[in-house]
Design a protein around this nucleic acid. Sequence first.
DNA 1: CTGAATCCAAATCGATACTG
DNA 2: CAGTATCGATTTGGATTCAG
Lengths: 143, 143
Amino acid sequence: MGRRHLVVTTSDRPVLHGTDYRADCPARHILDRIGDRWTVLIVIALWDGEARFSELLRRIEGISQKMLTQTLRGLERDGLVRRTVHPEVPIRVEYALTEAGRTLRGPLRALQEWALAHVGDVSASQDAYDRAHRPPDSTDRDG
Amino acid sequence: MGRRHLVVTTSDRPVLHGTDYRADCPARHILDRIGDRWTVLIVIALWDGEARFSELLRRIEGISQKMLTQTLRGLERDGLVRRTVHPEVPIRVEYALTEAGRTLRGPLRALQEWALAHVGDVSASQDAYDRAHRPPDSTDRDG
DNA sequence: CTGAATCCAAATCGATACTG
DNA sequence: CAGTATCGATTTGGATTCAG
């Protein structure tokens, strides 16, 4: 049985790794978290302050109840979101970012700024790429 | 294909802002990119300079040929990686980060630093969460 | 050597129905 | 209101096979 950890070898010091080269490093875990479809949207939705479950469901367009619950649970488990149950009738549950959760704002912003700065270039590049790699056109008149 | 409505075009509103919870923004596109299993590792592997296809295959442990090709194509299409074919025998193909690709280093670093700074807290939180939500154990005894 | 194509298993996610 | 449970469609990624 071979090792199953993922390794990237570079001559210099790798960016996303600490003392070892495995891909299951802390940074990889974070990438897995924010890489899913909804985590970042939820964090953004909670930037302004706490919100109820149904409120998040309304504000985050397209998310299903299942995914909201599931993602919220993961965030709560990681200590990035705090869940507060108010035993009223009907029941009320408030979600809010923890202190740690709020600090995610910086890195997310860095990513946002990169995206904003490069969205034009990326879009143009995709355009050019798609033109250059267009599927074979049968109306080709060069024959 | 399917339901990917990542409209990177006419978003005149601020992107990862507290009032925008939509998934169709530039930042979302970036998150989709770096969120996949291999993109970041490839970017890291190309940090030092260009590399051949087979070299990347060797250095990024665990990646399959298919995924390397596929991810490289996406990166190339986005203008983050440049592909150079040397028509020799046997053929030689070199991959390298473009200028835009290299600028991804900053945001990636921010993420890494966040992860490093919080891995302890997150781990502890997960631990506590799992203890509190322990699977039903009948051998429970109070000490 | 580079890489496209195909088949298949597993993970992800959404819609729906049901509970307290 | 705030979930849980389940099923099926979709997506993802890996192994394998074939080709320039």
